Amino acid sequence: MNSLLVAETIWAEIKSANSVTDDHLSILHILFGKNLERATRIVDQRGVKKISGQPSQRSIFQITGESRKKEEYLCFPEHYCACYSFFYDIVNRGEQLCCKHQLAARLAVSLGTCVDVKVSDEQLAELLAKL
């Protein structure tokens, strides 16, 4: 079974149980290493916002980074993050499956701990235009 399929299975189990077991964390740590530890810190600090446009319900995630600057990165958890690591480690070098921001978004969604922010579709379009 490939790594992405294993990860998808774990995310689905976490979401259905609305909790994370030690087994889940062990498997995710094998797949994602240090990025998982960093992602859990972001989730613990409530650094994951799900920004949803109204009335379309389209959404993007805004993840607060761990640096002192507390930079915010726009992210589609399964496909894209605007951070440097996404382009360097994932796209360029192919060394990781995803960045810590994508992991934080996936974990927060699975646990139901995202900060939900509702905006107009126009505001969401303006946010997306910055990408």
Rank of each mutant, 00 (worst) to 15 (best):
C98H: 13
F32H: 12
A104Y: 05
W11T: 10
Q62F: 05
D121S: 10
E122Y: 03
F87K: 15
A12H: 12
H79K: 03
C83R: 03
G53E: 06
C81S: 06
E72H: 05
S120I: 05
D22T: 14
A125K: 13
N18T: 15
E8P: 04
Q123T: 14
A105T: 02
L131I: 14
A104I: 03
K130G: 08
L131F: 09
E71A: 04
K50E: 14
A12S: 14
R68V: 09
R68M: 09
A104T: 08
S3M: 11
N35E: 09
A39W: 08
S26M: 09
R106P: 00
S16D: 06
A108D: 00
Q96F: 00
L111N: 08
Y84R: 03
I60K: 07
F87A: 12
L31K: 12
D89Y: 13
S52G: 09
I63N: 14
S120L: 04
C81W: 02
I90G: 07
H29S: 04
A7E: 11
L28S: 08
S85W: 10
I14G: 13
Q45Y: 13
S85Y: 13
L28Y: 07
D44A: 15
Y88N: 11
S67M: 01
F32W: 12
T64D: 01
T64A: 01
L25T: 01
D116C: 01
S3P: 10
K50F: 12
R93P: 02
E95R: 00
E13W: 11
A39P: 00
S26Y: 02
H29V: 04
Y88S: 08
R93E: 04
H24Y: 02
R46V: 14
L97K: 00
P77T: 02
H24G: 07
L131S: 12
S59F: 14
L31H: 10
T40N: 04
I60L: 07
V117M: 11
D22K: 13
A108K: 00
I14W: 10
G65T: 02
L25A: 02
V109S: 02
D44V: 08
F61V: 01
I90V: 14
T113Y: 00
K118M: 07
T40I: 10
A108C: 00
I42E: 05
I27K: 06
Q62M: 14
A82R: 00
L127E: 09
E66G: 06
D121R: 06
A82T: 00
L124M: 11
Q45S: 08
S3G: 07
Q45E: 09
E72F: 06
A104G: 01
D89R: 07
N2Y: 03
V117A: 04
G94Y: 12
D116G: 01
T40S: 09
C99Q: 06
A12R: 14
A12N: 13
T64R: 06
G33L: 08
L36P: 03
N2A: 10
L97I: 06
V117Y: 04
I10K: 09
S56E: 01
I51W: 09
W11M: 09
V117L: 03
D44G: 12
E13L: 15
A39F: 08
D44F: 11
D23T: 05
A12G: 07
G47L: 02
R41Y: 10
H29M: 03
S85Q: 12
K70G: 11
S59H: 06
A17S: 13
S85F: 05
S3N: 11
K100T: 09
G94E: 04
W11P: 11
